[in-house]
Simulated assay, not measured.
Amino acid sequence: MIRAVLTGTGSALPARRVSNAELAEQVDTTDEWIVERTGIRFRHIAGEGETTATLAVDACRAALTAASLAPADIDLIVLATATPDQTFPATATKVQAMLGIDDCVAFDVAAVCSGFLYAVQVADSMIRAGAAERALVIGAETFSRILDWEDRTTCVLFGDGAGAIVLEARESVDDVTDPGARGILATKLHADGRHNDLLYVDGGPSTTGTVGKLRMKGREVFRHAVVNLAAVMGESLALAGLTSDDVDWVVPHQANARILDATARKLGLAPGKVVVTVDQHANTSAASVPLALDTAVRDGRIKPGHIVVLEAMGGGFTWGASVIRF
Score class of each variant (00 low, 15 high):
residue 103 D to N: 12
residue 68 S to P: 14
residue 40 I to F: 06
residue 56 A to Y: 09
residue 101 I to P: 06
residue 96 Q to E: 12
residue 70 A to G: 07
residue 27 V to D: 07
residue 78 V to K: 00
residue 124 D to S: 05
residue 91 T to K: 07
residue 103 D to A: 13
residue 41 R to Y: 10
residue 90 A to R: 03
residue 42 F to D: 07
residue 101 I to A: 02
residue 130 G to I: 01
residue 133 E to K: 14
residue 36 E to A: 14
residue 65 T to Q: 12
residue 99 L to K: 01
residue 74 I to T: 04
residue 99 L to N: 09
residue 77 I to D: 02
residue 74 I to G: 10
residue 121 Q to Y: 07
residue 127 I to A: 05
residue 29 T to A: 01
residue 110 A to F: 15
residue 51 T to L: 01
residue 68 S to T: 13
residue 45 I to H: 03
residue 37 R to A: 07
residue 120 V to Y: 14
residue 36 E to I: 07
residue 33 W to P: 07
residue 69 L to F: 02
residue 99 L to P: 04
residue 120 V to D: 02
residue 81 T to C: 03
residue 52 T to D: 02
residue 117 L to C: 05
residue 52 T to W: 00
residue 31 D to F: 09
residue 36 E to W: 05
residue 113 C to K: 10
residue 102 D to N: 13
residue 32 E to A: 10
residue 101 I to H: 01
residue 130 G to D: 08
residue 42 F to H: 14
residue 68 S to Y: 15
residue 119 A to M: 05
residue 54 T to W: 06
residue 99 L to G: 11
residue 54 T to H: 06
residue 109 V to Q: 02
residue 68 S to A: 10
residue 114 S to H: 05
residue 92 A to T: 10
residue 70 A to P: 06
residue 111 A to F: 08
residue 112 V to P: 08
residue 60 C to T: 01
residue 65 T to A: 15
residue 70 A to W: 10
residue 126 M to F: 11
residue 37 R to C: 02
residue 103 D to M: 15
residue 125 S to Y: 04
residue 84 P to F: 05
residue 94 K to E: 15
residue 119 A to V: 08
residue 94 K to V: 15
residue 35 V to H: 15
